[in-house]
Simulated scan of single mutants.
Amino acid sequence: MARKDVLGRTGEQLAVDHLIDRGYEIVARNWRCPVGEIDIVARDASTTVIVEVKTRAGLGFGHPLDAITPVKLARLRRLAGAWCAEHEPGGRVRVDAVAVIAGRDGIVIEHVRQVC
């Protein structure tokens, strides 16, 4: 497995652990449909949360959240719609982002609610 793939999987697990520690229930991981893939689907009380995770080993290529472009946000909205059409979750739906920086100095996790 490529180093970047290991880093990505590690980042997703750290994001899951972060969400669980804050009381979220994990509903699905790596859910796929023709539109693309949702990294994490979680519940925050009565809200369904679509979570995009971006992981970097450092800031040499910019902050992880810089990779969430307007095109990516549009895809996340379509993915949220596809999830809801298939699962009919009821309640509110929001899209969050979790940035994971796993550098030499330790791990930093930043959770941004409602990115779109």
Rank of each mutant, 00 (worst) to 15 (best):
I101S: 08
V95P: 04
I50Y: 10
V16M: 13
R104M: 15
G23F: 11
R22M: 06
G58R: 02
A15Y: 12
T55C: 04
I101D: 14
A74H: 05
A97P: 08
T47N: 07
R9A: 10
C33D: 15
I26E: 03
A42I: 02
L73S: 05
H63E: 15
A80P: 08
W83H: 06
A42S: 09
A2G: 05
H87I: 00
E110D: 15
R22S: 08
G23P: 13
V53H: 00
K4Y: 14
I50T: 05
R56Y: 07
V108S: 13
A45M: 12
V98I: 15
L59I: 07
P34Q: 04
A67C: 02
E37H: 04
C33M: 07
K72V: 15
G60I: 03
P89L: 03
V41C: 11
D21L: 08
I20V: 11
G58Y: 10
E86N: 09
K72Q: 12
R22D: 13
K72H: 10
G58I: 01
Y24I: 03
T69R: 00
C116V: 15
C33W: 09
D5N: 14
G60E: 15
A80M: 10
G58W: 01
G11C: 06
Q114G: 10
V6G: 04
L79P: 13
A15L: 03
C116G: 15
A85R: 05
V16S: 04
R92E: 11
K54S: 00
A82W: 07
G36S: 02
R94T: 05
V16G: 01
R78C: 06
M1S: 11
G8H: 03
D39T: 02
G106W: 15
V27I: 09
N30L: 05
